[in-house]
Amino acid sequence: MKTITFILMLLSCTSIMFAQDHNYQSKITINPAVGAIIPIKKLFKGDASDALIGYKDLNFYWQALSGSLYFNRRFGIQFDAQIAFVDKVNINAPKFQEQVREQFGVDRFFVAGSGGEVWYANMKSVARVMLGGVYRYETTRWFLNPRLSVGVSTFDIQNASVVLKEKDSHEFYTVSYKRSNVATNSFTVLAGISTGYKLRPRLYLNVDLSGSYFRPNLTINEDVRQASNGEMSSRTVDYKRSIVSINAAAGVIIVLQKFKEFRSE
């Protein structure tokens, strides 16, 4: 109860600062935020090769570089670059090796080691870069900014290989995963709405809700080579399903520049 009273008092105090109408004054803003991507349709399909894609279905991101430029009272453009944090296969990758073993049968195989592929250990990647139009509606203390953006979702895919040894046998199988296409940028559409409370003339609290859609075109080739006779079998794992997710973020909007007529304020 005390907390609620304190928040109400804080809001009342800040509203005094807005005795004058500050609506539609900002021209350039930056919008740092942190958020979560909540999947409705997922990219991963439970295959061992999932681990080689630098993407997470449920993920958190940092809206590191985001800003808006308004041309007039109502319309502007907004740029967003989000960095998502992903765990990549590292050079030891025991978890990935065990996933491959599970896929081929734990009753039949042991992990004998990695096949000598170079495995990277990047810990983060730019997940999404968006640019779009934004409309704004403001009251003295509140704002509501719907927007429509297009851009790219991008992530890395790694090559890897694992050597499996067959039980009760001398046989080895080298399982290699190779990406067939280097381009991992997918066209993305995002519709969202930002809303929040104006704490100060140049500082707003911001909550952002959006829905995004993209359709990746990723293919990973799985080759299995039998050591004793050199026989090879191949399989293609496609990641081409449409991905829909809800993004929820919270942050602040900082007004960097106002329109000329309001700059003296």
Partner: peptide, 20 residues
């Protein structure tokens, strides 16, 4: 005996598919 993850020295019986 090479029936497991690694070949081990043995004095017992061995599967004929995993002898070395």
């Amino acid at each position: 005996d090479n029936s497991g993850a690694k070949a081990v020295v043995t004095s017992g019986e061995v599967k004929r598919s995993a002898y070395g």
